[in-house]
Design a protein around this nucleic acid. Structure first.
Lengths: 353, 353
DNA sequence: GACATATACGAAATCGATTTCGGTTGACTC
DNA sequence: GAGTCAACCGAAATCGATTTCGTATATGTC
């Protein structure tokens, strides 16, 4: 039981309603509504008066009522899985912030939902949609076979994915050309004289992971270097797997002089482990990341990475989702963005021992 | 005019309505509504039938209609300023994720809004509230004189701040006892033999910054060390200011052997700079952070920091906001949580040169 | 001056769930 | 057998904005 506190903390500031504005002006509700929405069949003079009064009364239409009538929520949903990193990941959170900002530009809000139980994920998408709390979704970390995609497509729910999938021909997506990026990374390292280049990969379920490995392979080829499957270590985009991967590489006494990592977090983990093992970066080992998160620049050594702009992805996705909600065909909204090498100090020619 | 694409991408999956469930069952709408909401004046048998049919029809009530009638949005707003870090900050994003997860546990959703123009911040709070899109707010990064607080208090809007303010006696807040934490940090460092300990502080507008400096000072006192104002360098919670601060410290040829930073990002920046200047951490310089973000563990060297749980803060805030929306007095919801030292490898006894 | 045509606005219906206020039905009492 | 009291359920009002449909003045036409 909570005790009514002595202080009056709940001032009943009733929000002004459209009906009140109408009455104050002596006109009908439809007039106010149409005036505020700038309909052509309302005289300029009336519009002016309505706007004035609305302003004076501090009227801000109830989005609840509007949504009910119009059938739109002006909100986009974004689900993060609490378990697997979620907003823990630097890139994911940079992207989320950028997305929220971009959506704002289109008058949309972002509904962020953290799903605890992975099993309830689909259920949550369904609920949010059925309830009408969102007009569409943005999906992060697309998996190769992503049940979310099929589910949403079946129901005709607007959505755009960050990353492709096996169904990407039929839905809207934005993606970074990570295949090309990794190929370039390898060529870059090869150009610095590295002959044995390992890769600490990402979560194998994620579509992009296969692309990155593909890029690694074709980069090796262009550089005329042999492909050694044992040099691709499994990972999951975490810093922890970076540490582990590096340990394995060292333990196996391989002659690797450079490592490309599936993302910046993994690269940081690898470098951290390298330092602990007494390896200096980049003198004895070059390490490269992917994503270009802010923190990469502040790492020690500052991380060479394949950078792409979270802000741009956010902007693009915002425009896309607006189009989709408006009825556009998903297939018309597919964008592949490039990543570029930002050379900092975690890579360099190997100083032969 | 957009052209109707050839493929039918928009299956008109109409969401089932309460009226449909009622009709399918041959009962009235109120019966369905009350059955689903488990009112006592509906027979068990009827409830069962209703639930069954609702399930069969895949009925999920429209939250729009429900909200309009009940006057609640079941949503909490969180605004981040795109300009000043926002979700860029590791701690902020960890906290945001935790908050979203915790709110979910209470059946609430999180509306994330990125405000671009700081001048429009208050306006956004107002709009979100007036529109009825949210039932309350969570404020991050509380400033000493925070106009948001006054604004929301005046209107009786439920909110809880993460961090205290000059009005914190009258609103709900949760905070980390950073004063105590910094005092302990100093004593910890002093215990390792450090005599000259600097601090790279945070944004001076933030309330917590003054507390941290206060703690630094009192820690010095307990350790019997003199307080030298020139050893407190200004900052803004960024890694960049960590770099800058360290540079200044070195340039001024001070005999500082340890530095406490306002947060982990600043500490990482400082260490990164130290490395560049050829200073080894912790052999020549000990650096300590604050917040205990995940990445701190993966930094090189792994960061000694004052850790507190974003998850716990999130949980607590979620409970608080639920209480407030339910009508609790804000003054009954004020919690101070402790931080604890996590000793890793960025600190240690100085190796005298 | 009668008739068509805009122009500007309003009454009432609508969105979908909840609430209010009764109305049935059946059991139970005396 | 009339009266009382629960237990259950439904018609209609409600939340606040938008839309539909129509009407009342101007304006223009011949």
């Amino acid at each position: 039981m909570r005790s009514r506190s002595t202080e009056t903390h709940k001032v009943p500031v009733k929000r002004a309603t459209l009906a009140e504005v109408a009455e104050a002006l002596g006109v009908g509700k439809p007039t106010v509504s149409r005036a505020l929405n700038n309909y052509p069949d309302i005289s300029e003079e009336t519009k002016r008066r309505v706007r004035e009064m609305a302003n004076k009364l501090g009227y801000v239409g109830s989005s609840r009522a509007r949504q009910l009538q119009k059938g739109a929520a002006d909100t986009i949903g974004l689900l993060v899985t609490a378990a697997s990193e979620g907003l823990q990941s630097a890139y994911q959170s940079e992207f989320t912030g950028a997305l929220a900002a971009a959506l704002d530009g289109h008058g949309l809000d972002l509904l962020l939902h953290a799903v605890q139980d992975p099993a309830a994920e689909i259920e949550t998408y369904n609920r949010l949609w059925q309830q009408g709390k969102v007009d569409g979704f943005v999906l992060m970390r697309t998996r190769i076979h992503d049940e979310r995609i099929g589910f949403l497509m079946e129901r005709g729910v607007p959505f755009v994915t960050q990353g492709r999938s096996d169904l990407s021909a039929h839905h809207a997506w934005i993606d970074i050309d990570s295949e090309e990026a990794f190929a370039e990374a390898i060529e870059f390292l090869a150009g610095q004289g590295h002959r044995r280049i390992a890769m600490i990969s990402g979560d194998p379920d994620i579509y992009s992971t296969t692309l990155r490995e593909e890029g690694y392979r074709s980069g090796l080829e262009s550089a005329g270097l042999p492909f050694d499957p044992s040099l691709i270590l499994p990972g999951d985009f975490s810093a922890a797997c970076g540490r582990l991967g590096l340990k394995q590489l060292v333990d196996s006494a391989s002659d690797v002089t450079a490592i490309v990592c599936a993302n910046d977090a993994t690269a940081m983990g690898a470098i951290s482990q390298a330092h602990e093992l007494g390896l200096s970066v980049p003198q004895q080992l070059s390490v490269m990341g992917y994503d270009g998160v802010r923190m990469a620049e502040m790492f020690s050594p500052p991380l060479t990475t394949l950078s792409h702009s979270a802000a741009e992805s956010g902007e693009r996705i915002a425009s896309m989702i607006v189009g989709l909600v408006g009825g556009d065909a998903p297939a018309n909204h597919q964008i592949l963005l490039p990543a570029q090498i930002i050379e900092r100090r975690s890579t360099g020619p190997t100083a032969k021992e």
